[in-house]
Design a protein around this nucleic acid. Structure first.
Lengths: 239, 239
DNA sequence: ACTTACCTTCCATTGAACGGAAGGGGTGGC
DNA sequence: GCCACCCCTTCCGTTCAATGGAAGGTAAGT
């Protein structure tokens, strides 16, 4: 059964980037001998590679393949130069994200030498209601998604918005004003602003994280919108 | 056989990012019915996703997995801010690459709005002898690799170095001077400079591509070396 | 209406995956 | 030094699930 091999790959996640054979077998629920053979095949093919310690990690070949996924090819390439502009203009951590079901998926991220404590990493997923890019994506998401997201407004910090009515009001303002903000709703000491990318249909969200927003929100929003428009234009002309 | 499924995944490459079922079957050398079932399994798991047109592409889940690969986690994160500094200082296309067997594997890339025509993309592979980062990696590679690489010095442009003796001499200079250069050896109109990252053992190469090198090579090399040292230091302190 | 090309489903055959068991290596406890 | 523990690797007879040829369905092109 092919799916056995996939289960083995599925045993890896952000907290378990390297696993021994027995851990793999346990996590995938496979007998050791079976895991051994399958892992061997995956290794031979290049899907897994083996550290000096004997532990297995995701291999180069899967990394390559992942880069061919559409999430990345079009959007990331188009966005890349604008993310730099944005970083240059704001010196804040810059995020490019898309919606994947009921979560924010961070597609690209650009951080300077020192940055506000930020939990996101490229490829990581966070709830939609507690981040700037998340609120943007939620504001423009289909009704079904919004309904589901409202069903699980988990509290992350004391400032996380967990009341449906209040979140709904915020989303209305996002649509009206064209940007979303958060204040320490995902992690303490971090505020964020985000704008949608794409006109009629929102394909992504662009956001920055800063320690404080009161000072020059207007300037940041303006910079974000310039970049977002640039990305949208590049995407449209590439199509 | 699990490897059948892997062959199907292997059918995707930079030129074939989306494939129909029959193309997949053909490229993987499998009977259509077999390919159909396997593709179905891969799709259900999330390794493949299906476009509106019916064609298959690499799915999000593989993209996620790829990001867990070690190439990326340590090196890219450590390098990211320095790549950025480097771009700011030179306004050239910046490359971070590692050696994968007998090829250069581009791990990160940072380009401005306009850039010299460059063939590389993140995740792409190029021969070691025709690029700046490649020459650096080759210069510090084990003897066995060098031998193999010398066996296939394919000509890419009229300026590509294809004589083993001449390349050997160049590599000697790379080791002596600490940087490598190319002049239109990979694509016309593009020159490059690159330096090694890491002290005793070279873990990566850092390079930039510019239209012309005669003007301020010294300044570029200096900027590269500052960045490379920064990356190495970050890597070491993270370990 | 005919041709072509692609996708999907079915099902009897068969050979390749399966996993229990046994062997080897390394580490730590006493 | 010896034993206990854990992890990795190899072997091999059984069996059951993958296989792929064939046939049916759909869509587009002439």
């Amino acid at each position: 059964m092919t799916s056995r091999a996939l289960d083995l790959l599925g045993a890896f996640d952000a907290e378990h980037r390297s696993l021994t054979l027995s851990e793999l077998a346990r996590r995938a629920g496979l007998p050791l001998a079976t895991a051994h053979r399958l892992v061997g095949e995956l290794h031979r093919w290049g899907a897994l590679s083996r550290l000096a310690s004997g532990e297995y990690v995701i291999g180069r070949r899967l990394w390559d393949l992942g880069l061919l996924a559409p999430v990345q090819s079009g959007l990331r390439q188009a966005a890349s130069p604008f993310l730099h502009d944005l970083y240059g203009a704001t010196l804040a951590t810059v995020h490019l994200a898309v919606r994947d079901g009921c979560e924010v998926l961070y597609v690209d991220r650009l951080a300077g030498h020192v940055s506000v404590p930020v939990v996101s990493a490229v490829g990581s997923r966070l709830p939609l209601h507690a981040t700037g890019v998340g609120k943007v994506l939620l504001a423009y998401a289909p009704e079904a998604v919004r309904a589901e997201a409202f069903g699980r407004l988990t509290r992350i910090t004391p400032y996380t918005v967990t009341q449906p009515a209040r979140l709904a009001e915020q989303l209305r303002r996002v649509r009206a004003e064209g940007y979303a903000t958060t204040g320490e709703e995902m992690s303490l000491g971090a505020c964020s602003v985000a704008v949608p990318v794409g006109g009629d249909s929102v394909v992504a969200a662009l956001g920055i994280v800063v320690p404080d927003l009161r000072r020059d929100k207007a300037r940041l929003v303006a910079a974000l919108q310039v970049a977002a428009r640039g990305i949208a234009r590049t995407l449209a002309s590439a199509e």
